[in-house]
Simulated scan of single mutants.
Amino acid sequence: MTVLEQGTITIHTENIFPIIKKSLYTDHEIFLRELISNSVDAIQKLKMVSYAGEIDGDVGDPEIKITIDKDKKTLSISDNGIGMTADEVKKYINQVAFSSAEEFIQQYQKEADQQIIGHFGLGFYSAFMVAQKVEIDTLSYQSGASAVHWACDGSPAFELSDSERTERGTTVTLTMQEEEQEYLEPSRIRQLVKSYCDFMAVPIKLEDEVINKHEALWKKSSRDLTKEDYLEFYRYLYPFQDEPLLWVHLNTDYPFLLDGILYFPKLKPDVDVTKGQIKLFCNQVFVSDNCEEVIPNFLMPLRGVIDSP
């Protein structure tokens, strides 16, 4: 066979970007989970850098703040994590699907016990599913770093300028689209945080109140837990249900790396045992409770949590 020509396929960014914005996730509400996950990663990275001895002094208590401004129609997610320099913004924000996670973990392998959630570099762009404009204000932990402001209106064009930010960390501000105003309601944000981010290891604040549980029971050793701890956790996951018959605490690293707690409930005649009720997490981030393709059929009657990175 004679090869007539070889080359590289051309992709026009002005055409592909709208597809990413509209089709990245089925549910638009996922954007909040993705942005909060990025903030958690920034805080975990700061811990790793601190453990490596690259930061002098205390890094302070980690926290994520969500701020709503209905007059400006903005929703902001702020963290006091590692922050970014201008070069890092260009590298990790301006390049779609370029994740900083793998590169960072390789650099700080000895401190890599801190879990980094993101690996694909796409989650940030979920913000454009609900926002007409996205802005970033960030200041790196690095000595002498300058604060940076990045802005994009959903087109491939962006602006990079100086920022007035004075504290280490990052704030992502979304100017919401007219049809996405529901995400400016505190009750809606609380509901989404409880659904997706309830067990993230960092306190998440809204209106000066911590709105997530931020303690994953399955990450603890069974030796440190009491019967009441397990029952209280079950009641939290499945309110108004009879107490389970027994439970199994999973902490395995072979053949799969996973943690979890599986409960054996009291089955009633009207219960559909083919509908799974096990909640699937990835690094303490809720993914799905529709796990028919992941959970074997014989485990479908069980309830609880499975977490795998």
Rank of each mutant, 00 (worst) to 15 (best):
D137S: 09
M200K: 06
P203D: 10
A147T: 03
G123H: 04
E159Y: 00
K194I: 00
L192M: 12
C152S: 15
W150N: 05
R190K: 15
Y196V: 03
V134F: 00
Q181P: 01
V193I: 14
H149S: 12
K133T: 12
A151G: 08
G154A: 07
A147L: 03
A157G: 10
L122D: 09
Q114C: 10
G123W: 03
K205G: 01
G121F: 05
L184R: 07
I204S: 05
C197G: 03
Q191N: 13
K110Q: 13
L192R: 08
P186Q: 11
C152M: 11
F158I: 08
A131I: 03
E179L: 08
P203I: 06
A151L: 05
I117D: 02
G118E: 12
Q132V: 07
E178G: 07
S161D: 15
D137T: 05
H119M: 11
S161I: 02
E182Y: 02
E179N: 14
T171R: 04
G118I: 04
F120V: 11
Q191S: 14
A112H: 06
K133M: 11
Q132R: 13
V202C: 06
E167L: 10
R188A: 13
V130T: 08
A147F: 03
K133A: 12
T171F: 04
S187T: 15
A147V: 00
G118Y: 02
A151F: 02
F158K: 02
L206E: 06
E182D: 14
T175L: 09
D137E: 14
L206P: 04
Q177Y: 03
Y183T: 05
L122G: 09
I116S: 00
G121R: 08
T175I: 07
I117H: 06
Y183W: 11
R188M: 13
L122T: 12
E185Q: 13
F120K: 15
T171V: 11
I136G: 01
Y141P: 06
Q177E: 14
F120Q: 14
Q181C: 09
K205L: 12
F128D: 02
S195C: 10
D113Q: 11
A145I: 05
Y141V: 08
Q132G: 15
K133N: 13
S140L: 00
W150D: 00
I117C: 06
L160F: 07
L184M: 09
Q132L: 02
M176T: 06
F120T: 15
I189Y: 02
L160P: 03
S143E: 15
F120W: 10
L192C: 08
P203M: 07
L192Y: 05
Q115M: 12
E182L: 10
A131H: 02
Y125L: 04
A145Y: 00
V130S: 03
I116R: 01
I189M: 08
T175F: 09
M129K: 12
I189V: 14
E167K: 14
T170Q: 05
K205H: 13
V193S: 03
G144H: 10
Q114E: 15
G121M: 08
R168A: 12
L192G: 07
Y125H: 13
F128R: 00
S143L: 10
T166D: 10
S195Y: 09
C197L: 07
R190A: 09
G169H: 00
A151V: 11
C152L: 02
Q142W: 00
